[in-house]
C-alpha cells in the first residue's frame, strides 16, 4: 500500500458514492448511463470472485464488498426505483461492441488460462472501456450536470492514481502486471479529453456543455 494506491481507492470510492447520492438526493438518474453502470457491476462481480477463494486483508475485503454493493445499488436505482427518470433513448451505446471483443481478448491474453483468472482479466479489460456509454451519452446530449462531471473526474483520477501506484510498485517492489498497466493506461487516456474540459472550462459550478 502506498499513497497513490490509497488515494486512488478513495477517489474510486468517492466517485461511486457521489453518483449514488446524486441519484438518491435528486430522485433522478437523468443524464446517467445505465449501461455503463451495468458494465461496472459486471466488472466488480467478475473481478472480486476471489472474495470466495482467498482472504487478502480486511481493507481489501471491505472495499470489494462496498464496491459491489454500491454498483448493484446504483443499477437498482436506475432500472427499478427511478426508472421513470432514466433516459434510455440517449443511452444508445451498443455494449455488445465492448463486451464481445473484451471477452475474446481476455481468453486470448491472460496470465493463466483458468476460469477465475480469465474472469479477472475480462474485468480489467472491461473496466477500461466501461465508461464509454456514459461519455457517448454526454457527447450525444451535449451536456452533463456538474455533479456528474465530479463523478467522472473522480473515476478518471482513480485510474490515473493507480498508474502512479504501478510506477511506485515497479521501482520499490519490482512488481508489475502488464495486463493491468496496459488496460489502466487505456482507461486513463479515455478520460484525458474530459479532464481537459473539466479543468480548463472551469466546470466546477456550471453545467457542462460541449
Amino acid at each position: 500500500m502506498n499513497v497513490f494506491r490509497l488515494t486512488g481507492d478513495l477517489s474510486h470510492l468517492a466517485a461511486i458514492i457521489i453518483l449514488l447520492l446524486k441519484i438518491w438526493k435528486s430522485r433522478s438518474c437523468a443524464g446517467i448511463s445505465g449501461k455503463s453502470q451495468i458494465l461496472f457491476a459486471i466488472v466488480f462481480t467478475t473481478r472480486y470472485l476471489d472474495l470466495l477463494t482467498s482472504f487478502i486483508s480486511l481493507y481489501n475485503t471491505c472495499m470489494k464488498v462496498i464496491y459491489i454493493g454500491c454498483a448493484y445499488a446504483t443499477v437498482y436505482l436506475i432500472y427499478a426505483k427511478f426508472r421513470a427518470t432514466y433516459d434510455g433513448n440517449h443511452d444508445s451505446f451498443r455494449v455488445e461492441f465492448l463486451v464481445v471483443p473484451v471477452g475474446g481478448l481476455s481468453v486470448l491474453i491472460n496470465h493463466d488460462f483458468s476460469p477465475l483468472e480469465i474472469l479477472w482479466t475480462f474485468s480489467i479489460y472491461l473496466e477500461s472501456v466501461a465508461i464509454l456509454p456514459q461519455l457517448f451519452m454526454i457527447s450525444k446530449t451535449g451536456e452533463a450536470e456538474t455533479i456528474t462531471t465530479h463523478y467522472l473526474f473522480c473515476l478518471g483520477l482513480y485510474r490515473a492514481l493507480y498508474l502512479f501506484n504501478w510506477i511506485w510498485r515497479f521501482y520499490f517492489e519490482g512488481f508489475f502486471d502488464m495486463i493491468a498497466i496496459v488496460a489502466g493506461v487505456v482507461q486513463t487516456v479515455l478520460y484525458c479529453d474530459f479532464f481537459y474540459l473539466y479543468v480548463t472550462k472551469g466546470w466546477f459550478s456550471r453545467p457542462y456543455r460541449l
Binding site: R5, D9, H12, N60, Y67, D112, W120, Y162, M178, I179
Partner: peptide
C-alpha cells in the same frame, strides 16, 4: 509471466 496473484489491488 509476471505474478499477478493474489490480487491485493482493487
Amino acid at each position: 509471466e509476471d505474478d499477478a496473484k493474489p490480487k491485493d489491488e482493487l
